[in-house]
């Protein structure tokens, strides 16, 4: 195990964040604050409670998930895409490190950043809404599992992408719609039955539902199922990455 290499990659990535502190951390926090003001305070005050939870409280887990997914994917995909783009990847490829170590470095850094952002949003939310976290351990679990799984996914995306457009198209065209339709702003029980069933094919539903359960003890689907789904997703990502490195797909001629 090349620990020095993992450390080098991890801190190199983290320092990139520090250098771009404003856009890495401040902008997601700011944009979620806007959601809280608009949906939580302004519109939320006219909405009824959902499952006994006020609307302002209800949207917190979904909003955090929204940022968490986007940040994890964009940080990890950018992290590995940039060396490909600038050509500095030669150094990673010629270093005495294996795929596993590269992934721990990059995905570890992306996960750390996302979790930090998630926590910051959580703290920001406290300014607007008074909420309690019923199952803090589960909440941390969900936070970490989601951030790490989607960082893995972002890593795959960064390897697959061969242009900046492609890098952005997946978060924009797939992840954002899935999050919006995954119950960030409503309970899927509020949908007609057909749409409810259809929604169950949206993996983000399980994330948001499980995460919300850790806050308020209410859920659209069973928590066990949620956890199971995240782990399945993570497993799929790991398999794909294993295959990528085995084949050298889009990294090595």
């Amino acid at each position: 195990m090349n620990l020095h290499a993992i450390k080098a990659i991890y801190f190199f990535e983290m320092s990139r964040t520090l250098r771009t502190l404003m856009q890495s951390i401040a902008s997601p926090v700011l944009s979620t604050s806007l959601y809280f003001i608009v949906f939580g305070a302004a519109i939320g005050s006219r909405m009824g409670d959902i499952d006994g939870v006020s609307y302002g409280e209800f949207i917190i887990p979904g909003l955090i998930m929204l940022s968490l997914l986007n940040e994890s994917i964009s940080n990890a995909s950018f992290g590995i895409y940039m060396p490909k783009f600038t050509g500095t990847i030669y150094e990673l490829l010629s270093a005495p490190i294996n795929a596993f170590e590269i992934i721990i470095g990059f995905v570890g850094a992306a996960t750390t950043k996302s979790v930090i952002i998630g926590v910051l949003i959580l703290l920001t939310a406290k300014l607007f809404v008074d909420y309690e976290v019923t199952h803090p351990v589960y909440m941390c679990c969900f936070l970490f599992l989601t951030a790490s799984s989607f960082s893995l996914f972002g890593f795959i995306l960064g390897i697959w992408a061969d242009s900046f457009e492609r890098l952005q198209i997946v978060p924009m065209m797939i992840i954002t719609p899935l999050t919006f339709l995954g119950g960030s702003f409503y309970s899927i029980k509020m949908l007609p039955e057909f749409w409810q069933t259809l929604t169950l094919f949206n993996p983000v539903v399980y994330l948001i539902s499980g995460f919300r359960w850790s806050f308020y003890g209410i859920a659209d689907v069973n928590v066990g199922v949620s956890l199971f789904m995240i782990l399945i997703f993570k497993l799929i990502c790991l398999t794909v990455i294993y295959w990528i490195f085995k084949k050298g797909y889009r990294i090595k001629e």
């Binding site: 090349n2 020095h4 250098r19 600038t86 500095t88 150094e91 010629s94 005495p96």
Partner: peptide
């Protein structure tokens, strides 16, 4: 093995010292 590739490719926003230290770490040296 150490390699100086034909094309110059660098992390433009990094400092000299930082990027050189990074290389050392990547190759497993304290």
């Amino acid at each position: 093995v150490g390699l100086v590739p034909q094309e110059i490719s660098t992390d433009m926003f990094e400092t000299v010292l930082h990027t050189v230290n990074f290389s050392r770490g990547l190759f497993g040296k304290a």
